[in-house]
């Protein structure tokens, strides 16, 4: 396990921010952390980044105990907080060289390293621009490059896409995909849940400091009730399809979605296949029938339903 928490708890006065969190993330996995504001995501990330001391339990990064060996933990991870500032009067190159120096990378190696990092985050053309003059999206990408100066095995990204416009979000997502391909273990939190669905191998849903669901997106969405959120798109006879679905006993919450239909399906894989056959027999020209790609928000809402009391 590259990241592991064992009965991790954190209390701020009377507020229990984190309660008995047990988390295991394998090497090379991208783990998405979902939860509303104040659920305990950032607290967990701060503890893992050695910036906050837990009240109870233990946390390990690359096998190092965050409390007992913070220096080794810092060398093993790159942390990007949800909000971070930049220094005035420093160029992008100088900014990255500063952090390379802070991680004790020898001076002769820094130039080449910084050039590579800027290329990775598509900022080579802004190498000599002052950091405070860069757009928010560029600063976020530079922040990601900053996390990588010491080539850490683990990246902890706290809502990296918050406040970014759609283009900047897509650019950032592509870089994170590249990092996943490079074998980095990534713990990422986001409010833009569909993005996590595309990026993550596993997700954890946290609410009021408790991990209430953990596993792959599919596992979590089918948890307990064998319920999945599905999408259907048809070239012709979509109204017929809507009629069939609305009368089907396993289908609920039917709605129009992005030119097709979206619905909750409670049942086995065989039952899904039977439903598809029924649709085809009714002359519905189906071009897509499967799990909804952008259903994480619904999964989150479904799982956390009633947790808040």
């Amino acid at each position: 396990m590259v990241i592991e928490t064992v009965h991790l708890s954190k209390q701020y006065g009377n507020l229990q921010a984190l309660s008995d969190l047990n988390l295991s993330i394998d090497e090379g996995k991208v783990f998405g952390f979902i939860g509303p504001n104040g659920a305990g995501k950032s607290t967990t990330m701060l503890i893992l980044s050695t910036l906050l001391e837990q009240t109870d339990g233990d946390a390990y990064v690359c096998g190092y105990n965050v409390r007992k060996d913070p220096v080794s933990v810092r060398q093993s991870l790159g942390y990007m907080p949800d909000f971070f500032g930049v220094y005035d009067n420093l160029t992008a190159v100088e900014y990255l060289e500063f952090y390379a120096g802070a991680f004790k990378i020898p001076a002769p190696k820094r130039r080449a390293l910084v050039a590579d990092l800027l290329e990775l985050v598509n900022l080579s053309h802004k190498a000599d621009a002052f950091v405070d003059s860069l757009s928010r999206g560029m600063q976020q990408r530079l922040g990601l490059a900053r996390c990588l100066v010491h080539d850490p095995a683990v990246l902890i990204l706290d809502e990296p896409a918050s406040g970014l416009d759609p283009r900047a979000r897509i650019e950032l997502r592509e870089i994170i995909k590249q990092l996943r391909e490079m074998g980095k273990t990534i713990l990422i939190s986001s409010h833009i849940l569909p993005e996590l669905a595309e990026l993550c191998d596993d997700i954890g849903v946290i609410e009021q400091g408790r991990l209430i669901a953990c596993g792959s997106v599919h596992e979590v969405s089918n948890r307990d009730r064998e319920m999945s959120i599905m999408q259907l798109r048809a070239l012709h006879n979509q109204n017929t399809a809507a009629l069939i679905l609305s009368n089907h006993s396993s289908v609920s919450n039917l709605e129009e979605y992005m030119g097709g239909l979206r619905f909750y399906f409670t049942g086995s894989e065989q039952q899904k296949a039977d439903l598809l056959q029924e649709l085809i027999k009714a002359q519905v020209v189906v071009v897509y029938f499967g799990d909804s790609k952008a259903n994480l928000e619904d999964v989150f809402l479904s799982i956390t339903e009633g947790v808040g009391g």
Binding site: R74, Y79, V86
Partner: peptide, 13 residues
Amino acid sequence: ERQTLQILLTTQL
């Protein structure tokens, strides 16, 4: 205040 301290504290300094 400019939210650079946390990052600085996660370095080897």
